[in-house]
Design a protein around this nucleic acid. Sequence first.
RNA 1: GCGCCAGUAGCUCAGUUGGAUAGAGCAUCAGCCUUCUAAGCUGAGGGUCACAGGUUCGAAUCCUGUCUGGCGUACCA
Length: 547
Amino acid sequence: MNFQFLVDIFQKSLEKTGVSEGYKLFFESPKNPENGDLATNVAMQLAKAMKQAPRQIAETIIKNLEYDKTIIENIEIAGAGFINVKFSNNFFYNELINATETRDLFGKGKSGAGKKVNVEYVSANPTGLLHMGHGRNACIGDTVANMYEWNGWEVTREYYFNNAGNQMNNLGKSIFARYMHLLGEQDFPFPEDGYHGSYIITIAEMLMTHHGDSLKSSTTEDLAVCRKYGEQWCFDRIIETMKALNVHHDIFFNEDTLYTDGKVNDVIEQLKALNLAYEKEGALWIALSKMGLKDDRVIVKSSGEPTYRLPDIAYHIVKFQRGYDQLIDVFGADHIATVPDVLAALKALNYDISKIDVLIHQFVTLTENGEQVKMSKRSGKSYTLDELIEEVGSDVVRFFFLMRGITTHLEFDLALAREQSDKNPVFYLQYAHARISSVLDTAKDREINKKDSFDPILLKEKQELDLIKILLKFPAVVESSCEKCEPQILAEYLRELAAAFHVFYHDCRILGVDSDLQNSRLHLANITKIAMRNGLTILGINAPDRM
RNA sequence: GCGCCAGUAGCUCAGUUGGAUAGAGCAUCAGCCUUCUAAGCUGAGGGUCACAGGUUCGAAUCCUGUCUGGCGUACCA
């Protein structure tokens, strides 16, 4: 629904009233339906400046209002000075016709037409299997990317593959130690902060089948083989897990290319040229204190290895140079410390950081029977994402990760997720879709053919009008959930839509009523199905025809 | 110590640039299937919006302080 016309006619009325500033004209839908379809508080905002009672101002505004009475049924003053607008049913009927004409593309927006966005998500190190936290990240990132696509953006989905640095060496050493153990060298020391998971042993076993004891001499090359082998194994498994979760990427950006292409050195040179990097105690520091932050940080360790901040900066520059209109990073709360540093450095290097949107999601806790299931990659005791998907299915996993706001801590209730019943919230949505499919199938079986057009005026029951009104919000919800990068808004909306459909279905028969009414109701059911399917598709969840 | 996120019904969470009587799901209780899928629908109970101040016509929402939990505060990522 497009309410711009409403803003326009109010704007005109305000001009006629002689008001030109001191207010922000906007409409919101009142909680209580008795207060109409849309309301504005503009009269209350003006009360002080105009030195008049809000209700009196509202009266003047309404008097100067010119509007089409076939579209707006009623405008009245209520409460402390709200102006409530009630649309006529005709308005909704026209909008419903417009919506059905978009067919399968209902909800598709154009606000991003011609613009390019890069969404980076998951970006887990290839040092192990994905766990719950990565799962939330993957679902948020993938869904945000879907939302941008639905609003007309050209979307690049990217995974930053940290295959350089200390953690990778650590992986190589852990694998090598297990490899030595398998060769009977039980006393070979396991690295102190090594990876303890059983998958390391699996990798070592495979390594032994391929290489026998040829790596035993423990040269740098041997360790590099372990490292590379482990990286590939982890990468393959990560891809598999994401595939099971309906998550994919267009680009896997390898961190090590930042070194081979000289991008990291470029950053160092540029920072030095701006006098923003300096040597101290054998390390290279970035002068964040000159950029408005509190402490300077090391970007190249005294060992000669860079810290994560440096490649992070270089990587963002690479993304900037590809010419996106917007860059989105999806990070877990544990990465929060790096964000201000990277942004400050990019700003100092003259990049427009207003194009960067960093989404920080809070942690996931997995509970079962009121007890927390801990997950830590290095200790090895973890409930992997694979196991979770295997156990409850991808649809449930995705919905559980998306049904909460990204800034809140998410409690993943395993018992509830396992529940294959009406208690499980995702089924409520899928069931609405399956029900509609079933009715449409039954109609076909009975050789009831939906006509090309329908008469919306026949849809005059309260349940029908309620459903229509909620249905018409769909495109705006797709747009605002994208603007706010908040999948939860869409998930919550779909629950509301499903509820409105279930009530309609319960109270209004679709098949077997008067044939014109039957035709109109079939159309209403059909467009509801399309909205539900499109919404679920954006969330990456299946819309089943049968349950 | 400092920074970020959070604190709303028994539990998990919504609450749109400050708005009208603070909502939903689950749980509890009471109803509804000879008719298109009961994984559904209807109703009831359930609240000091962590606490204390402040801003104003109006605060769960904004400001200040306090308390509680999570994350961070590395020459790990």
